[in-house]
Write a protein that binds this DNA or RNA. Sequence first.
DNA 1: AAAAAATGTTAATCTAGTTTAACTTTTTTA
DNA 2: TAAAAAAGTTAAACTAGATTAACATTTTTT
Lengths: 197, 197
Amino acid sequence: MIKEKGRALLEYISRYVSLTEAEEAILLSKVTYRKYLKGQFIVQQGDVCKYECFVISGCTKMFHMDNEGQEHIVMFSIEDWWTADMGSFIAQTPADYNVQCIENTELIMFSYDVIEDLYAAIPKLERFFRQIIQKAFIASQKRIVRSFSLSAKDRYIYFRNQYPKIEQRIPQYMIASYLGITKEFLSKIKSELIFEQ
Amino acid sequence: MIKEKGRALLEYISRYVSLTEAEEAILLSKVTYRKYLKGQFIVQQGDVCKYECFVISGCTKMFHMDNEGQEHIVMFSIEDWWTADMGSFIAQTPADYNVQCIENTELIMFSYDVIEDLYAAIPKLERFFRQIIQKAFIASQKRIVRSFSLSAKDRYIYFRNQYPKIEQRIPQYMIASYLGITKEFLSKIKSELIFEQ
DNA sequence: AAAAAATGTTAATCTAGTTTAACTTTTTTA
DNA sequence: TAAAAAAGTTAAACTAGATTAACATTTTTT
């Protein structure tokens, strides 16, 4: 199973570093394939995050639940992207975030217990993960600027243009949460946009 | 000069990976020490960012200037921290951000032209930078949640507790920009807080 | 196919934070 | 040390977006 499902991961890694067949075999021997159903949690706030996960298929949301019980979505992950509470994973401390499946989701999971072995066995993975995290960091920095310099309407337009495929498959109230606004206000924005065209 | 000023950098790196003396020598031979005066720009929005910079002393702000001419500060960097527009640096595309000195600032600069050589010569640096960027990414993610789930007042209180040293040395209007509010509103928040105690 | 649950809409009222503008205090420069 | 520039304050009027609540539509379950 991992041999078949691991193909997407190896193909993805090969865009960044080139592994030998032996290295690919080691990698696949150390990771786990797993299916989750819609609604299931991959990480729960308060637990220690044990896995970095590569999404083979499906869709997840990562969110923080505040004291008033409100969800704040920081990230969606679809095919060929990653998900986990990296802060919790690295320090093995309680997670600030939940990661929950919005669709049935297939993952390849890198356990905390093996990731250091993997870095030791395949040093090229240090380079690979450095590059992945760089990209994630850059995206995160840009989002901070957008959250301050754009109006809610412009943030929505940006999101729609940037991630047209994600918008299709996710309920609006989650998009509102990602944009940092209420679902009612997003609804108003959308009706204004229809009117303008 | 680099030998003397590089000490802080080597000490910092040694917290993450241990380099041999030969590796340390290679590293210092490939980087540049430079002083900037208060007000000078290390990176200008629109230029390509040529350097990743480690701060030896002083203080910088990284900010985006929007179409209305307003500054949005994403990050301050003091001693033992990094600064650069990483997106621009990695892709060698025009920068979205300015990096400007708030104080006279001493830096050690990693040029784009040598960083790949450095990774090749000292693979441990891949690990080192992976860890640094992971930390930066985690901080950035947390900031997104705070920007959505905390009021301006609570964001200010958080900032003050988290970075008491930074607050001392930076003008209030820059802190307001970092918090995503106007200087007038920060002034109001501060007077309320004094009143509450 | 009906009922229930989840999602989305509309509109009135409210509030956190902005804008504008005049003023005070502190820092820098001549 | 005086003048100018930069930084910080206060308060009134305003607005983007939140809250509340009632209702409409779509999806899921029985």
